[in-house]
Design a protein around this nucleic acid. Structure first.
Lengths: 199, 199
DNA sequence: GGGAATATTCCC
DNA sequence: GGGAATATTCCC
């Protein structure tokens, strides 16, 4: 609205190509125009919001900001400008790079690319799907492995108590005290593990 | 400051006991006084902040708010009034649907991606990130569990071979053929499990 | 540019 | 009353 308004073009306007807006007079802009739209008159707070919504400063030596969805005449694109989410960097800390290379992939991009460009989003999407696939596979194999260990422990724990075949002397099974203690400890461990589900 | 100021006592003042403040005229308070201290003039936003800082509304049929650290004359207590932290609910989300049916999450959604809409892509992106986080957590807990089982098996396998204390007759350990076979199977299983990394 | 604390809004 | 999204501030 401000960028379009010819009355404020000496303060803020489109660049020549209509691909970005330029704040020609930051001081006047902050003092006179910001308070009409926001609860403050700080240029830096305005810039902070621009960044949050995917606008980037052009390296043009002036206050020029661009966003792929902000172009002269293309008002239909405006609805694609969204606030970057805050959760993007919160839980994604441990992407389990157990054996996947993905070395060069900039992990911070998840938060950066959010709203700026369509192709960035596509790239991130692809990467997420790849990562997702890797995680699914890794999880599946870990679960399988976990189940194997579990079954093994369960089997042994079971067979030991059921089919103990060790020789007896006159009907009494030969077993020394310290072995008994060790075996009981083992059984306790197994019992506690068995009490949880591992499937 | 406002509560103390005699000039505004008809709008806001201490209660009789000096244990709370009372907003006698919420409308005037919001319109005339709030903007002098805050970036808004909404009484409800003011109340929201009061709650965040531990003030509670008294059940007195008027806008009376109290806080143990807010008392007439006790200005030294004011520094004990702190903003409530937000962390209390953040990390407790832990979906960890280890055995839940995960019904609503359509895992096949990846195929839907052919839709070219930008906001669809954003939504999918969000979902992927969420899914990713859940997978990471589930993988971590499964790995932990796997390691526990692994250590248990390793421990037993170890102690069994090292300190077999069963009685011998003339230097030969008593052991029946089928037990030997079962134990070898067990050892083979353990060996193969040990050959993979489970950390 | 963006993380993080705090403020304001919106909603249950 | 408070959870949660968004805005503003502060700071690296």
């Amino acid at each position: 609205m401000l960028v379009e308004d010819p009355g404020t073009d000496h303060i803020i306007s489109w660049n020549d190509q209509g691909t970005a807006f330029v704040v020609w007079r930051p001081a006047e802009f902050a003092r006179d125009l910001l308070p009409t739209l926001f609860k403050h008159s700080n240029f830096s707070s305005f810039v902070r919001q621009l960044n949050t919504y995917g606008f980037r400063k052009a390296a043009s030596g002036r206050w020029e900001f661009h966003n792929d969805m902000f172009r002269r005449g293309e008002t239909g694109l405006l609805c694609e400008i969204h606030r970057r989410k805050a959760w993007s960097s919160k839980l994604s800390t441990a992407p389990s790079k157990t054996q996947s290379p993905e070395s060069d992939e900039d992990h911070g991009s998840s938060s950066t690319s959010s709203s700026s460009s369509y192709s960035n989003l596509c790239d991130e999407n692809k990467k997420l799907k790849r990562e997702n696939g890797v995680l699914c596979m890794e999880l599946a194999s870990t679960k399988k492995r976990c189940k194997e260990l579990f079954d093994l422990v369960a089997l042994y724990s079971n067979s030991e108590s059921v089919e103990d075949q060790r020789p007896k002397l006159f009907g009494v099974r030969l077993e020394l005290p310290q072995e008994k203690k060790r075996k009981d400890e083992f059984s306790d461990n197994i019992r506690s593990l068995l009490s949880q589900s591992c499937k």
